[in-house]
Design a protein around this nucleic acid. Structure first.
Lengths: 337, 337
DNA sequence: TTGAAAGCGCTAACAG
DNA sequence: CTGTTAGCGCTTTCAA
């Protein structure tokens, strides 16, 4: 790799002049500029940006902690991040953490060791060693999609409670009275929020909350399938199932169909996220659309503002949702709209 | 951010001793080690790894160019990469390139500017400016999933031709004689290879190749749906459709079902990749399983070997495939097995 | 308009 | 076992 020194030597100027030619060409005479540029071309010089970053103290790297890139919703979020980051001259270092705290902590060290300027966490977990955080101030961090409580950092989130309530109301409006809920990962605030919204809607409709209608899930296809089988084994079956994400719903629909049920005739199923597959299900899935790419874009924008000190206090941005009614939900048996 | 100097000052030793204590503690007396460690703890010292990397000339970063993380197959590949990279102390810089040559070239510059040690490309395109490549040697690069012709770099690939032939043979064995093929992106060698495999099987079975059974696609759900509609409009319909990936197949299945067809009774549909959704389709999808995570792991291993000069020449690694027969393929109408 | 020189934080000879 | 020192490649004063 040729260095700036070799260029200087070949052009017969000082390294300072080479640097200036590349950074602020107008401050260099046309003649030297010419000489330098052809020397650059001749040796194929590319500045060592590692050196530049080291010197400037700015890496222009952002770490993103994502539980799993295999989750289609997250994939969209990342897509949005990448785009905005690139526009601002930042690169994304993506960490597929599998929700593992150790891996998250490891990657967070990239910020602590000056390898990245900031971090975006898509899960409700503070990846920075708390002793460090308390003792020596916070590192630039943004929380997206989830809600990291007890830490003062910008948050980009959905009003999950309202959205879940809206979906539950949709099911209620179709005459459903026994509505099961297949939850997301246990320790996630998002899961609690969606549950709360579900309960809100039931309470408002004067329906008693029945804990036996709650089923565990973890946002995977398999977990939806498993939960649906449990529902099928239940004595007094629900007539509708609200799944906390689309993958779960798709897994559940399969289990119901394998058991010979017709969707939505025998069972209504709703999801959450509106991933691409939702529209291509059989039947197409009723779900809540979230602006996934916009989540990513917003999170990156906030983080860069934080890094560049344009932010005075940590805001909470609430993104809009949209109820998408497709064909996986229908009237409850015997219901007269 | 405290530096090594502050630690040295506080511990009353030289910076070299601090560095040694951290790198090779055994070369330092227990007493000084003690002093240094408590000074490190007291100021909350974290080494500036940017400086370390700059000095060592090794970044331990790998750039990965992926057409789109939203493709579930690629998501799995990336997952495998991340894992292996982490094991070797490397980080993955993921670039969601959308198959855009300009974006790819931009990210490739990270290698050229010493911000990353090497690159993995998942598409058949050389992201390095060819003049640079020719003039000044190659950068460490590995091609995975696709086949980058005309460049001598390690390749991790599937025998796409054999795999496609195997799937076509499966369909032929079910009595299908008119088999449509929904292709992948136009300019992809992988697409050509799968087409070749399809033709191999037909030729071997003594069936004339009919160009009207070829349909364009781009690996998206939507493109499968669109192609299936074209098939439905055709005069002399095929009885089976082989899709070059699972997303395409899932899109196609929906279109067929919307037209009132029963799968596989009226139409057999096969995919390629065995993504998670394949098993949860209705009906579950017959497909070719590829060891996606293993692709990622192998590519990273090769790249690291290349970077660390453990590789003398560029190998081509052929990964195994497996024909997964599920319920989306069945006997051709009137066929007596 | 240009050059000399300092220094970013760290490691690795080399001396002691 | 420990300290001194040079230097990685670059930018940026400060002088000339």
């Amino acid at each position: 790799m040729p260095t700036i020194r070799e260029v200087a030597l070949l052009a017969g100027v000082s390294v300072a002049t080479v640097s200036r030619t590349l950074q602020q060409p107008e401050r260099v005479s046309p003649k030297t500029r010419q000489k330098v540029m052809s020397a650059v071309a001749e040796v194929g010089y590319k500045p060592n940006l590692m050196a530049v970053k080291f010197r400037s103290g700015k890496t222009h790297n952002l770490v993103v902690l994502v539980p799993t890139v295999a989750n289609v919703f997250f994939a969209r979020v990342i897509s949005g991040m990448q785009q905005t980051a690139a526009e601002h001259g930042y690169a994304i270092l993506l960490a597929n953490t599998l929700g593992n705290a150790t891996i998250e902590t490891d990657y967070a060290k990239m910020v602590q060791t000056s390898q990245a300027d900031g971090l975006i966490q898509l899960r409700a977990f503070n990846p920075f060693d708390s002793s460090v955080v308390n003792g020596h101030g916070l590192y630039p961090m943004v929380n997206a999609c989830e809600t990291l409580e007890q830490i003062a950092c910008p948050v980009v989130t959905l009003d999950n409670r309202r959205a879940a309530k809206a979906m539950t109301e949709h099911l209620l409006s179709l005459g459903h009275r026994r509505i099961a809920l297949i939850k997301g990962p246990k320790d996630s605030p998002l899961t609690r929020q969606r549950l709360a919204g579900y309960q809100d809607a039931l309470a408002q409709a004067g329906i008693d909350f029945d804990e036996r209608l709650l089923f565990a899930g973890d946002f995977t296809l398999q977990s939806g399938h498993t939960a649906a089988q449990q529902i099928l084994n239940q004595q007094h079956r629900p007539t509708a199932v609200f799944c906390e994400n689309d993958e779960t719903a798709i897994g559940a629909i399969q289990a119901f169909k394998q058991a010979g049920m017709k969707i939505p005739h025998d069972m209504s199923v709703a999801g959450f996220d509106d991933i691409a597959f939702a529209r291509f299900c059989d039947p197409p899935l009723t779900t809540i659309a979230q602006p996934a790419e916009e989540f990513g874009r917003t999170a990156v924008t906030l983080l860069i503002d934080l890094i560049e000190q344009k932010l005075t206090k940590a805001p909470t941005v609430i993104m809009p949702y949209e109820l998408i009614v497709r064909e996986s939900t229908g009237p409850a048996p015997g219901f007269q709209g």
